[in-house]
Design a protein around this nucleic acid. Structure first.
Lengths: 202, 202
DNA sequence: ACACGCCCATGACAGTTGTCATCCCGGACC
DNA sequence: GGTCCGGGATGACAACTGTCATGGGCGTGT
């Protein structure tokens, strides 16, 4: 009696490699592999997956959103988030969305299978270093609009462009940016956007 | 008689997964795994690796620099670059440094082993889509100093900070930025920095 | 010797950005 | 009803940024 696992990662090589890694465990069987978050629920339902291993950074629906959809649509199916970036805000968002596990890709390869087993048994698994950091790191102080303008400011576009894409007045955009710069303790909109992103606030 | 492979990737989980993937091939043996570019040559020499599979994005020495060191220090040992980002400039730089292969992490998992075999046999392997793009994408038009200021401008720091960290006059920094903005057809320093990075010009 | 390109700098100018005060509107909460 | 907070906006001001002209020094080719 094996644990049926679904794998979601947009990088085919990494996806295949993870499948090979998990496939070496006698008690684990990879029953589905998908390359985007949108396909997760359908594939999990079709193949009867019991645990979903989800990357966050994917085109279309990201791993956190996919975990949320899985939790709503397929009760009993658990999710483990596996991601490159150990951003404090991600952990909170992932667990709130209904994920049961959270690992960063620096963790030793042997621990993935162990995490899958634990999650399958109904336990929660969170990278310990990240767990404390996310508790201490505090909450997201940004308002909805501040997040919007920061996302639009990430690539360094001028205020006029941001205002156009959000259908706001340039002056309003500058107000939100100024407020976000204050909350992130930075001095330019791009610094504020990067800091916010690194903390998982966007 | 198997092909002896060294794996370098800073993400332990991915590294282990790639090892599992390659380990499934009967004619390939993973003889070393390292987490940074600095360890590559020593580990390759110690274990008698014949092919090095190198990620570009690593702390310390990156995969391209490591491939260059391997080519200089261990003639006969070949390198395959495996990276997340298919940036046109990377291909050129990697091949110039002495790498024999270049793959992006979107490629199907089955092709990695095949690439290792080809490279071991003395052939060159380059992702076909990227090969044409890098030929057409043209060369890096930036001067050394322009690259320096763009790297320092990536996170959105104000000119005064960039000038301080490079020991240059603020006016000089603005001149280089202005020139780089022109060459990248952008309108702010951060846009220029991001465009240059995406093309592998930094 | 000369031209060329890169490095480094200064000064001036217009345009953009960050800050602040101030306003209006609509919920939510006491 | 009053207070607070978020969304949206305007106007003014100082600081920063992008552009351009102009200068000098240094190394490489012809």
């Amino acid at each position: 009696m094996t644990i049926r696992v679904l794998l979601a990662d947009d990088q085919a090589l990494v996806r295949g490699a993870l499948a090979a890694l998990l496939g070496m465990e006698p008690d684990i069987e990879v029953v589905a592999e998908v390359g985007s978050g949108d396909e997760v629920v359908a594939a999990a339902r079709r193949t009867g997956a019991e645990v979903c291993v989800l990357d966050i950074e994917m085109p279309g629906m990201d791993g956190i959103a996919a975990a949320g959809e899985v939790a709503r649509e397929l009760p009993g199916v658990r999710s483990v988030i596996v991601t490159t970036f150990g951003r404090p805000g991600y952990v909170r968002r992932a667990l709130d969305a209904g994920a049961s596990g959270f690992l960063v890709k620096d963790t030793p390869a042997t621990e993935l299978a162990e995490a899958v087993r634990r999650v399958h048994a109904g336990l929660r698994v969170v990278d310990p270093a990240l767990a404390t950091e996310s508790l201490f790191g505090g909450d997201n102080p940004l308002t909805d609009r501040e997040r919007d303008v920061l996302r639009a400011a990430l690539d360094g576009s001028p205020v006029s462009t941001i205002a156009g894409s959000l259908h706001l007045s340039p002056g309003t955009v500058r107000n939100y940016l100024s407020s976000a710069i204050g909350k992130t303790a930075t001095s330019t909109r791009v610094e504020a956007a990067r800091v916010a992103q690194q903390r998982g606030w966007l």
